[in-house]
């Protein structure tokens, strides 16, 4: 009896300890979210130095955002960049993780390799992007190496080619994230019961068969997690293309991502459109995670 009374009086401390988190969350995240949604229903922008609005216009911002066509282009760009980054990344990470956790391979120095492949994840994306911009510029070291090797006769202008620019962005992101993915997948593989591998080997399965028939199916939950976080991260792609193209999304706006679009609206103080775009991004993020969660639910029937 005394104990229950005690624990009840202690439990009010649960609320007290939550106060800082909740206060910060409400002021700096929740109110801004509501404010963003609120702004999306108003006409509010600058023409030269003249402020237009704010006037309530209902869903007009959303309508003009969708009918304009830019949104579609930038969504496409963002998704293309994500796929170009994610596909090689997941293949490389699965391969490396399988090797690192394969006891029969007995690889030496795995800690060194893990340390090295995780390093790019901690690098300032904007500085890394600036580095690539200088290295791959017309008179930069990469062109001079390629010319010295005789591969090129004159400098190749990487940043006026859509494919080259997109590849560079995807490559940088892939480099920055494959180490993280490898370590996550490895943790998942280590969690698999070792006797399953032994049983498969006794049955005469090759290492490729073990990988596709045992490891991969058991990894599904963590693969799903990796894919969701990567997709949500991919939608937020900003620093690398912003710095690489100086915010222009060149060539021909082909590397302009959704967040760069949002950033442009925020800088030009076009708050109505920025609000509508933010809300749409918010909804897209929610829907995408739901789709993936659902899809994995269906797969369980197999």
């Amino acid at each position: 009896m005394r104990k229950t009374k005690n624990s009840v009086s202690y439990n009010k401390w649960g609320y007290i300890f939550l106060i800082p988190f909740m206060t910060a969350f409400i002021i700096f995240q929740f109110i801004p979210l509501l404010n963003t949604i609120y702004n999306s229903f108003f006409e509010n922008y600058l023409v030269g130095l003249n402020q237009v609005g704010p006037t309530f216009i209902g869903l007009d911002n959303y309508k003009s955002l969708i009918s304009n066509g830019d949104l579609l282009i930038y969504t496409r760009n963002t998704l293309i960049l994500w796929v170009m980054c994610f596909v090689p990344q997941i293949i490389l990470s699965l391969t490396l993780a399988a090797w690192f956790s394969d006891a029969s391979l007995k690889l030496k120095g795995t800690r060194f390799f893990k340390t090295v492949i995780y390093l790019p994840n901690l690098i300032m994306a904007s500085a890394f992007s600036m580095l690539f911009f200088t290295l791959f510029s017309e008179r930069g070291p990469i062109n001079s190496i390629l010319i010295q090797l005789g591969i090129l006769s004159k400098p190749f202008v990487f940043f006026s080619s859509t494919i080259a620019t997109r590849t560079l962005i995807a490559f940088m992101n892939c480099m920055m994230w494959f180490g993280n993915t490898t370590i996550l997948l490895m943790a998942g593989m280590m969690g698999i019961d070792g006797s399953l591998f032994e049983a498969a080997q006794v049955d005469g399965a090759t290492s490729t068969q073990v990988f596709f028939k045992v490891t991969l199916p058991l990894l599904r939950p963590i693969l799903l997690y990796v894919m969701i976080t990567s997709l949500i991260g991919g939608l937020q792609l900003f620093d690398v293309p912003q710095i690489l193209t100086n915010g222009t999304g060149d060539p021909m706006r082909n590397t302009m991502t959704l967040i760069m679009f949002l950033n442009n609206h925020l800088y030009s103080k076009n708050y109505g459109m920025a609000g509508a775009l933010s809300v749409m991004l918010f909804i897209i993020t929610c829907i995408l995670s739901l789709i993936i969660f659902k899809a994995s639910g269906h797969d369980k029937r197999k």
Partner: peptide
Amino acid sequence: YDFKLKKFIYPFILAIMMIPTQVTALG
């Protein structure tokens, strides 16, 4: 601690983990 709103607050914090900061940048 065991308090009444815990059942609600814990999943709530996990859910807001997914909200990208860019989405609330305007506000």
